[in-house]
């Protein structure tokens, strides 16, 4: 069976980069498609809200 992970090794890598921008830059330099998430701590890191968000979002 052709599973998702087997297919990954044959596919062009298209990335959602969450975090260090320089990794996204490196992918762009290689001519690969990448979108950059400008990541910040969700809910300012409040643990109660993080917990709630994990249930709802």
């Amino acid at each position: 069976m052709d599973t998702d992970d087997k297919r990954l090794l044959r596919q062009e890598i298209k990335t959602v980069n969450i975090g260090l921008e320089l990794f996204g830059e490196a992918l762009r330099q290689q001519g690969l498609q990448v979108v950059q998430v400008d990541w910040r701590a969700p809910a300012d890191g409040d643990p109660e809200l993080l917990d709630i968000l994990a249930q709802l979002l």
């Binding site: 959602v16 969450i18 990794f23 996204g24 979108v35």
Partner: peptide, 29 residues
């Protein structure tokens, strides 16, 4: 750049990999 994963994914729906380098506390989520 995008502020959320979902809007980033909307812009690149054929994305097959997420490369995550945020602080460990938040990385699992």
């Amino acid at each position: 750049t995008f502020r959320t994963f979902d809007s980033a994914l909307e812009a690149l729906p054929e994305a097959n990999l997420a490369l995550i380098s945020v602080p460990g506390k938040y990385a699992a989520a």
